[in-house]
Design a protein around this nucleic acid. Structure first.
Length: 515
RNA sequence: GAUUCCGUAGCUCAGUCGGUAGAGCAAUACACUUUUAAUGUAUGGGCCCUGGGUUCGAGUCCCAGCGGGAUCACCA
């Protein structure tokens, strides 16, 4: 019986390579080498800084005692010397390890037995040595000593690269999303997307903080899921014995804070909606909302343009971003089109004077399903979504929505039946929604009651009446403008990703079965 | 939720008309002290997603299930 067969019988669920790694783990322990040592490993450099800073003879002495730590990504075995690649948080750097350097005496076992037989690709090590340039011109670390920091028991997918071309890249999305840790290790570029996401958030925070905005935290567990039209996740609080909902939006809480005297608040709000998943929807997602006292939606459009232009610059260094076949320019200002004009332009039908019946007929004419449960606002929204939205690739403000689909929005100052609201459409998708906030408590109560009627009519997305929010408005909320940005979608636009799963570190997946 | 495509070694992928399971990388062993997708020689590694069915015989054909992608519906 072959040794491999014996191994398989001992541990039937492990692959050959996993069994061999466990045997190496035992060998290490037998040799008195800790596979998972506790002590700090002091580093004084990182891969990127060395490659950036090392200039050969000019500053060689600054790099004669470097110490870095990272994961072994490849080893090229030349017998009594190896070249390898070490990857740390900053990037990758080549190292050179030679038998006679780490074993200057007769005893070559550290090199022959430990390094060559017990260390693998994927292991995390620390190395000490000096920087040099190889014959072929690559900045490398000449290893004088190494320390095993973590033994890896599972083989890493091996991805190779030459001159920017990648070979055997792991493209299986299930692997990438379920084992993001491994995806991040082996696929260069994945990490870049998430670093850009952080840059984007930082840029937005910086913009807001510089303008005097206050970052706040509001409840995620809510007894009335308000501020949006969506199906919530339901949970239960045992001690109070009441149902609770994971928030679908934080809007009503932020407005309570405006009542309370803050004049600019914002929150990066993780929201939860119990709905379908696709390239642009994940059940949990992030919306940045902010509310500013004494402003209106016109001011908000100006602010939005500035915020996005500046954020794009911070993330990419320029205002343009390539997504699929489109190049999007976030440079302000953005076009502003009323929703009625948009519909007129893309369907040839002017619905601005029509009642619900007329719009229903228009839907029929356009071949759009007009559900009998839907009111006028929903029908208009449907026409816009079907016939117009996808045409707007460059950032465009669609403004002045019908009142019925905007129960939290202030009535338009000059056009009856409309509200002061805009959505920002980019690359054919909504990425922000804003309005002059409704602050008339009596009007707000009527709008909620209209929502309640819609709910009775069968609209399962109509809003609940939030009596505490009405009470807050009765104390008086100053004129306020508010906005919500789809942060995941904005990130997709700024990083050129076409699936929301590629801008979420751990996108939702059906749970794995482990038996 | 509906439709459709996919699931083969640790990874990337072949697998013809239904006839004993293949390659490269990775692994193991050997050679090689400046290589870089290192190279050369040899070896091992498979619940072909799971369960049924058809058949003398199924990775391959049929049905059901599981997981994933795409499109649609719902939505941001």
């Amino acid at each position: 019986m072959s040794p491999a067969k014996t191994r398989t019988m001992q541990a039937p669920s492990l692959s050959e390579q996993e069994v061999i790694r466990r045997e190496k783990l035992e060998s290490l322990k037998n040799a008195g080498i800790a596979p998972y040592p506790a002590a700090e490993f002091k580093v004084n450099q990182n891969a990127a800084a060395i490659k950036m800073g090392y200039k050969g003879d000019e500053n060689k002495s600054d790099y004669d005692k470097v110490s870095i730590a990272g994961r072994i990504m490849s080893i090229r075995d030349m017998g009594k010397a190896n070249f390898g690649v070490l990857q740390d948080a900053s990037g990758r750097i080549q190292f050179y390890i030679k038998q006679d350097d780490i074993c200057p005496q007769e005893d070559k076992s550290l090199y022959q037995q430990v390094w060559k037989k017990m260390i693998d690709i994927g292991d995390i090590i620390g190395i000490n040595g000096y920087v040099f340039t190889t014959k072929t011109g690559e900045t490398s670390i000449h290893v004088q000593s190494f320390t095993l920091l973590t033994k890896a028991l599972r083989p890493l997918p091996v991805v190779k690269e030459k001159e920017g071309e990648t070979f055997d890249e792991v493209t299986d999305v299930e692997f990438k999303y379920r084992q993001r840790y491994a995806d991040l290790i082996v696929n260069p570029g994945v990490k870049e997307v998430f670093l850009k996401r952080t840059k984007m958030n930082n840029a937005i925070r910086e913009f807001l903080n510089n303008h005097g905005a206050i970052e706040v935290d509001t409840p995620v567990l809510q007894s009335i899921p308000g501020g949006a039209a969506a199906r919530p996740f339901i949970t239960h609080h045992n001690a109070l014995d009441v149902p609770m909902y994971l928030r679908i939006a934080n809007e009503l809480y932020l407005k309570r804070l405006i009542v309370g005297g803050f004049d600019w608040v914002y929150e990066f709000s993780r929201n939860f909606r119990n709905e379908g998943m696709d390239r642009t929807h994940n059940p949990e997602f992030t919306i940045l909302e902010f509310y500013v006292a004494y402003k209106d939606y016109l001011w908000m459009m100006n602010t939005t343009e500035k915020l996005l232009e500046q954020t794009a610059m911070s993330v990419n260094g320029f205002t343009k971003s390539v997504v699929g076949n489109n190049t999007i320019d976030f440079k302000a200002p953005y076009q502003r089109v009323t929703i009625y004009d948009a519909i007129k332009e893309h369907t040839g039908i002017d619905i601005s004077g029509m009642d619900e019946e007329g719009i229903r007929n228009a839907c029929q004419q356009l071949g759009i399903h007009a559900d009998s449960k839907w009111g006028k606002g929903k029908l208009i929204d449907e026409i816009f979504g079907e016939k117009c939205e996808h045409h707007y690739i460059q950032p465009t403000f669609i403004i002045d929505y019908p009142e019925e689909m905007s129960p939290l929005t202030k009535k338009h100052r000059t056009s009856p039946g409309l509200v002061e609201r805009f959505e920002l459409i980019v690359n054919g998708k909504e990425i922000a929604n804003a309005y002059s906030e409704l602050n008339d408590p009596i009007d707000q109560r009527e709008r909620f009651e209209e929502q309640a009627r819609l709910m009775e009519r069968g609209d399962d997305e109509a809003m609940f009446i939030d009596y505490d929010f009405l009470r807050a408005l009765e104390y008086g909320m100053p004129p306020t403008s508010g906005i919500g940005f789809g942060i995941d979608r904005l990130c997709m636009l700024l990083t050129g990703q076409e699936s929301i799963q590629d801008v979420l570190l751990f996108p939702m997946m059906r749970p794995e079965k482990w038996d």
